[in-house]
């Protein structure tokens, strides 16, 4: 029912809603360019009288931003690549192979879907410090290298692919590894990409996980680094906002580039 043409009231409503939603982000950018004395004052004002780039120079002096950017990239990228590989392999087994224990494994995946990730945090921390994995990339990445959500999501998608294709390949003597790598995964490229975006954004933005498993500022990710920095410099808002802009910018740019695919990916593969 995409028929009803929108009247002026609908447009007015959407403009107001969009402005309200974008307000905190727009304010972040403005505050990062405002001299400190003009940010915190009463009454507060939206627009600054002067513009300054001092906060950007200062935050780069105080925080190892380049290093933390790299950490975030390695963490989010590493989790995404490994998890896509492992999730899709498990999903292939659950969607295409019959084997004893299949119902148990699938039941486990469904149960794990509901577990709040924070519940395992404390015992996981003990395991990780026992392994001496705190402040390491593999410590950040490996525990997230497979996800119940990813397995479930891809299994649902693989089930929608007609089996004729792989049956034909079977008759030609192709192995399951070949069918998985050459037929099922390539055909599922849109779902795999959507899941990849999910994994990447979730881990890039995550706060609690890197907060717990890294203690050294040179191993922090951007959100964790900035949140901890805030604890020590709570009144220097211009500085914090400059850090926030630099942290948010890559994600917003990436989103602008892929937003069509991303939003439609959720719309088409999210439910039903």
């Amino acid at each position: 029912m995409r028929e009803t043409p929108a009247g002026p009231l609908v447009y007015a409503g959407l403009v107001v809603i969009s402005a309200l939603v974008l307000l905190p982000l727009g304010w972040t950018v403005l505050a990062s360019l405002t001299p400190e004395a003009q940010i915190a004052r009463f009454p507060p004002r939206v627009l600054p009288e002067d513009i300054t780039f001092e906060h950007y120079r200062e935050i780069r002096r105080q925080l190892p931003l380049a290093r933390q950017f790299l950490n975030t990239l390695i963490f989010a990228g590493g989790v995404t690549l490994l998890s896509l590989l492992f999730d899709s392999m498990a999903a292939y087994a659950l969607a295409r192979l019959d084997f004893p224990g299949k119902r148990v494994v699938f039941g486990l995946v469904l149960a794990l879907l509901m577990i709040p990730p924070q519940v395992t945090l404390v015992p996981l921390y003990e395991i990780m410090s026992g392994l001496d994995w705190i402040n390491t990339y593999h410590g950040l990445i490996l525990p997230r290298a497979a996800s119940a959500f990813g397995i479930f999501f891809l299994r649902q998608f693989f089930l929608t692919i007609p089996r004729d294709l792989d049956d034909a390949a079977r008759i030609d003597g192709a192995s399951h590894l070949r069918i998985y790598a050459r037929i099922v995964v390539p055909i599922s490229a849109p779902a795999v990409l959507t899941l990849g975006l999910f994994h990447f954004m979730y881990n890039w933005n995550d706060l609690l996980w890197p907060l717990v498993f890294t203690t050294d500022p040179s191993m922090h990710t951007l959100p964790a680094g900035l949140a901890l920095f805030m604890g020590k410099h709570v009144v220097q808002y211009g500085l914090l906002m400059a850090g926030a802009v630099l942290t948010l910018l890559p994600v917003v740019l990436a989103f602008v580039l892929v937003q069509r695919r991303f939003v439609e990916g959720i719309a088409t593969t999210g439910i039903r």
Binding site: A6, Y11, L22, W204, L207, P223, V251, F255, V263
Partner: peptide, 27 residues
């Protein structure tokens, strides 16, 4: 609905879901 700028509005309301809550919470 049939809407000029539908893509923009859709993206605008979706942006908060893709940026870090830990960072935007500072703002």
């Amino acid at each position: 609905r049939k809407l000029a700028g539908r893509t923009f509005f859709r993206a605008a309301v979706f942006v908060p879901a893709v940026v870090s809550l830990g960072v935007t919470a500072i703002s």
